[in-house]
Amino acid sequence: MNNKLTKEEVLHVAHLARIKVGEEEIEKYQVELKQLLNDVDKIKEVDGYDEERMIAPWERDAVLRDDEPGEMLNPKEVLKNAPRHSGNYIAVPIVISEEA
C-alpha cells in the first residue's frame, strides 16, 4: 500500500476544500491524508451488502410547512456578524460576474 499522496493530489483536495496548504505543509498532508484514505479503503473489502441506503436514521417523512411568513431579521442584524459591509449589503472582494 502506497503511504503517500502525490503533491498534486494534496493540492487538488485542498482546492476542493478551499484550504490553503503552504509549501511547508504539503509533505505532512501527503502522509496524513493518505493514512486516512487507507483507513476508508477498508470499505472496499465489504461485499454481500444490500444496496438500500440509510441517508440518515429518519423517524418520519418530511413534514411540509404551510406557506405562511414568519419573523425576519432587520438588515442591521444581518450585518451584525459580517466582517465587511456596505450600506445594507454584505460585501466581498469583487467577483468576476457570472451573470450577463
Binding site: D67, P69, G70, M72, L73, P75, G87, N88
Partner: peptide, 22 residues
C-alpha cells in the same frame, strides 16, 4: 409562493436589500 423554500421568510422582489431574510 409567499415564503421561501427552506425558510419562512418572505419571497419578494424589489424590496430593501437584506430585509427579507432570516
Amino acid at each position: 409562493t409567499k415564503t421561501k423554500i427552506f425558510s419562512n421568510s418572505i419571497n419578494g422582489y424589489g424590496q430593501m436589500a437584506n430585509s427579507l431574510t432570516n
